[in-house]
């Protein structure tokens, strides 16, 4: 069980790197959607017999992250007619290396944290940190508004992984709240992207710095 969990988390880490290294926004959205589905499976592996809260968390995560949000974003992408992140602030290869560096640091750093004995062997904490960091990298280095929304999504995936540590204690309501926020956020961004595109004929956020009469 533990090994399967770790294997899934490693695949999630690899997906992080792929989402850093692809310039086609549609493929990035698909990768992040697949990541969301994998994340949905993880709560089911945490216990021997998944109870009601885990099932709900899994179902909601899969539906929202795997289907609804990617759908909204794909639609926004189609409306805005953009295909590629043409000029990221730092190149694709440097951002992959940066992502790998972040992953390594997360692995080394989480070693020095005091963990509950039941979570000692799993990669949950390093995976969460790495995913959050990768989300930050995407958020800060990409220019298109829609790519930044993807970064936001990756960031939330990281938070979701971290929340899995506490699946016994509190979290369903909190996690649902975060998911709702995220959903609303993506929805708003999708609409904004459309409007930016109509007003400026480009969705580069650095164009938004200058005011327009």
């Amino acid at each position: 069980m533990m090994d399967l969990l770790n294997a899934l988390l490693v695949i999630i880490l690899v997906m992080n790197l792929f989402s850093l290294g692809t310039s086609r926004i549609l493929s990035v959205i698909r990768i992040v959607a697949a990541q969301g589905v994998l994340l949905g499976i993880i709560p089911l592996l945490l216990r021997e017999r998944p109870g009601f809260p885990e099932l709900v968390a899994a179902a909601v995560a899969i539906v929202l992250k795997g289907i609804v949000i990617p759908g909204v974003m794909t639609r926004a992408l189609r409306d805005a007619q953009i295909k590629k992140e043409v000029t990221p602030l730092i190149g694709l290869l440097p951002s992959i290396i940066l992502g790998a560096l972040a992953t390594t640091l997360a692995l080394l750093f989480s070693n020095s944290l005091a963990m509950a004995p039941s979570q000692g062997g799993t990669l949950i904490v390093p995976a969460a940190f790495a995913t959050i960091l990768v989300g930050f990298i995407i958020l800060t280095t990409r220019v298109k508004a829609i790519s930044q929304a993807v970064g936001y999504l990756v960031l939330e995936n990281g938070i979701f992984i971290f929340g899995l540590l506490l699946v016994d204690a509190m979290p369903l309501v909190v996690e649902m709240g975060v998911l709702l926020d995220l959903f609303v956020g993506i929805f708003v961004i999708a609409i904004i992207v459309k409007h930016i595109n109509r007003a400026f004929s480009s969705t580069d956020t650095d164009r938004l710095v200058s005011l327009k009469e």
């Binding site: 880490l13 690899v14 790197l17 290294g21 694709l92 290869l93 992959i96 290396i97 790998a100 992953t103 390594t104 692995l107 080394l108």
Partner: peptide, 15 residues
């Protein structure tokens, strides 16, 4: 890029 990603994958496996 692809090959460097392969290096990174195998390298992080080692770490």
């Amino acid at each position: 890029y692809l090959l460097v990603s392969a290096i990174l994958l195998c390298g992080s496996a080692f770490i």
